[in-house]
Simulated assay, not measured.
Amino acid sequence: MNSRAESLSLPGQLTGRTAIVTGAASGIGRVTADLFVRRGARVLAVDLHADGLAELAERIATPDSLHTVAVDLTDAGAPDHVAQSCLERFGAPNVLANIAGKAGDGPLEDTTDEDLDFYLRVNFGTAFRLSRATVPHFPPDGGAIVNTSSTFGLVGVRGSAPYSAAKGAVTSVTRQLAADLGRRNIRVNAVAPGLIATPATQAKIDAGLFDDSVTRSRPLPRVGVPADIANAVAFLASEDAAFITGVTVPVCGGWSTTRYRD
């Protein structure tokens, strides 16, 4: 585990919570699932990649606190399967962390219908459909949904039309679900990661492709780590955020709101 996650861990913050965490086989999702367990939650870890989930389970080695489900969340029956798996293993969920997604580049004129459908299905559709499947099972005292948008869903970034559109939809539906579910005491928020070092981004980071456009142009001139996002997700999932709903929190070192100049 990254040392930042260890140093910021708050044991007991999520005690008594039952959480579904998607995208848990690697990157931000894996660190979030690990952090949730260490903060006291029981976690249903969901991902397409069974090998990565097995590595997570071996690392945590606490079967009473972690159960894995390998499933393609874009499959028609996947959301109901995930919800039922949680009910059978741990009981009703009161936290849903929609982290699964796929980044990618592509300007408008080069975007095919298949590209657009893919990014909408993976980044927006999975969160929408899993929320729809799990919300009926939330307990009477409610809980929290935390979605994953992106800084690309908050500001315009050249050459990212289908991905940005999908993440913008996540930001929008976060507000909508907060309005719809507030009377049931279900809070709905989102995090918007900036540049984070994950298996999907590491090669480009190492090549310096983001040095000028991202890293050096923001007030906090380092590349983010998955723990930066996981800690924000854990906060929004906890009672520490009991009066926060309908917001998307940028976790990007200031990139989405400022520009830094030496």
Rank of each mutant, 00 (worst) to 15 (best):
R4Y: 13
A234Y: 00
G168R: 04
A78M: 01
V249S: 05
I196A: 03
F210W: 09
R17E: 10
L154H: 09
T174I: 05
E6L: 09
E109R: 13
T201D: 04
T201K: 08
A232L: 11
L130H: 01
T174Q: 14
H49E: 14
A169V: 15
D64N: 11
D141M: 05
V21N: 02
T201A: 03
G91P: 06
P219M: 11
A97T: 08
L177S: 04
F118W: 14
R30D: 07
D206Q: 07
L8S: 11
V170S: 05
I20V: 08
L87T: 03
T257L: 10
D117T: 12
K102L: 15
P136T: 06
G27V: 01
A165L: 11
A200I: 12
A161M: 11
T112W: 12
G29K: 01
F138R: 00
S160C: 14
L73Q: 06
Q13P: 10
A92P: 04
G194E: 07
S172N: 15
A103M: 12
G16F: 00
G246K: 00
I196T: 13
S217N: 11
R183N: 11
P221C: 04
C86R: 04
K204M: 12
T18P: 06
L181S: 04
D117S: 14
V233H: 09
G12D: 03
S149H: 10
P93I: 02
A161I: 07
L177G: 09
S9V: 09
I145F: 05
V251I: 15
T257D: 09
H137K: 15
D141T: 02
R259K: 14
V173H: 13
L195V: 00
A100K: 02
T68Q: 01
A78C: 06
S131N: 04
P162E: 07
P63Y: 04
S213Q: 14
Y163G: 03
L108F: 12
P250L: 03
A133E: 03
G194W: 00
P93F: 06
E58T: 13
N231H: 09
Q202Y: 12
A237Q: 07
G168M: 13
A133S: 09
G12F: 10
L195F: 06
R183L: 03
L87Q: 04
P221T: 14
A234E: 11
A92H: 00
A83N: 08
G12N: 07
V170W: 08
R259A: 10
D240E: 12
A78W: 06
R59I: 10
T32E: 01
S160K: 11
G143N: 08
D115L: 04
T258M: 10
A192Q: 06
T171M: 07
D105G: 15
F243P: 09
I205G: 07
D110V: 15
G142H: 01
L116W: 14
A190W: 02
F36I: 05
A232Q: 00
A169Q: 14
D117C: 14
E239C: 07
H81N: 15
F235K: 03
N147F: 00
N123S: 05
